[in-house]
């Protein structure tokens, strides 16, 4: 039954471009665009949840890693002329390396101090993006980033030019992130992560090095965020400093905390709700942030596990 439901859902998700064409032919482009964004945000939110939900470190630096990946990919593709896959891998690695380097001093901070330190990092990254004009072009943005072409040099190549193509690419990336997420958060690794999250001193007594596992989750999450950043700029063809502000953190916090911390299903539901909904409602960014902030405030104060636990409670 459950398997059948998941199969049906997967079929709907994969065939979405045709469904959209059949159901809302007039707004096909717009709806597909929202779907691409939803898939990319879902992947980004899952990577964020690896840190927040599974090792319990409230990092606010995710936009920085997303930005490092996005700018690396943009620069590799425009200035160095790298092929898409090369730029993607380079972007992911760059973000991962930055995370591993800054993670060492940042994890000297615990709990809320860590959160503030990471927020500081995000701020520094955004200052750099705005001001390092020789590299990032600052507020002028990096433009004319080529559309992705799948394939290796010399071999057959598949250019992604259509919106459905972008959608399937984003969906494939999301599927890969889901698999990685499952692999990391279940079985022995997941158990070690959760042990660190739930009781750090006891994790030490169990032979777990808390710092190592925190750093591992942080670095992997940043690597994924960098990869998503690469996909993002190759889709939009442009990268601006505004893409990596605190507003992105708020978005991720809302998706993760209102969807369900540490829950694959919760985060996916959150990503759909909070990426698609404001688009459909055509909310101005400031109003969206006011509403998100209020929602976040209400939900964390009333139910810290997010919608997931609300749903579970309602089902009972």
């Amino acid at each position: 039954m459950r398997r059948a439901a998941i199969g049906a859902l997967a079929a709907v998700v994969v065939s979405a471009p045709w469904l959209v064409a059949a159901l809302v032919p007039r707004q096909q482009r717009y709806v597909l665009h929202v779907l691409v964004f939803t898939a990319l945000f879902a992947a980004l939110a899952l990577s964020y949840d690896l840190v927040v939900g599974h090792v319990g470190s409230l990092s606010l630096a995710h936009p920085a890693f997303f930005g490092v990946g996005a700018y690396t990919a943009a620069l590799l593709a425009t200035r160095a002329g790298w092929p898409f896959l090369g730029a993607l891998i380079g972007a992911a690695l760059a973000a991962g390396v930055v995370a591993a380097l800054v993670g060492v001093p940042l994890f000297r901070l615990t709990e809320h101090a860590f959160a503030v330190g990471t927020l500081g990092l995000a701020l520094v990254a955004s200052v750099v993006a705005n001001n390092w004009v020789e590299v990032t072009r600052g507020p002028l943005c990096i433009t004319e980033i080529p559309k992705p072409v799948l394939g290796v040099p010399g071999g057959p190549a598949l250019a992604i030019t259509t919106l459905p193509g972008h959608y399937w690419l984003a969906l494939a990336a999301l599927a890969a992130v889901v698999l990685l997420y499952r692999g990391l958060t279940t079985f022995r690794l997941g158990r070690a992560f959760h042990a660190v999250r739930d009781n750090e001193p006891l994790a030490g007594a169990a032979g777990i090095d808390p710092l190592k596992y925190r750093l591992l989750a942080f670095t992997i999450a940043a690597t994924v965020a960098g990869g998503v950043g690469a996909l993002y700029v190759h889709y939009l063809s442009v990268m601006c400093p505004e893409e990596m502000t605190v507003a992105l953190t708020v978005n991720l916090l809302v998706i993760v905390f209102l969807g369900g911390v540490g829950s694959l299903r919760g985060v996916l539901v959150g990503a759909v709700l909070f990426t698609a909904l404001p688009e459909v409602l055509r909310l101005a960014p400031t109003w969206r942030l006011v509403i998100y902030g209020t929602l976040l405030l209400l939900v964390v104060v009333r139910s810290p596990e997010g919608l997931e636990s609300l749903l579970r409670r309602a089902a009972r």
Partner: peptide
């Protein structure tokens, strides 16, 4: 191996997982 005065378990893991995590490392 040590135990703690303030009884200490991983509350969100099952009893079985609480034991498994102590051996796997």
């Amino acid at each position: 191996a040590r135990t703690f005065q303030q009884v200490s378990v991983f509350p969100r893991l099952s009893a079985l997982e609480n034991l498994l995590v102590f051996l796997q490392q």
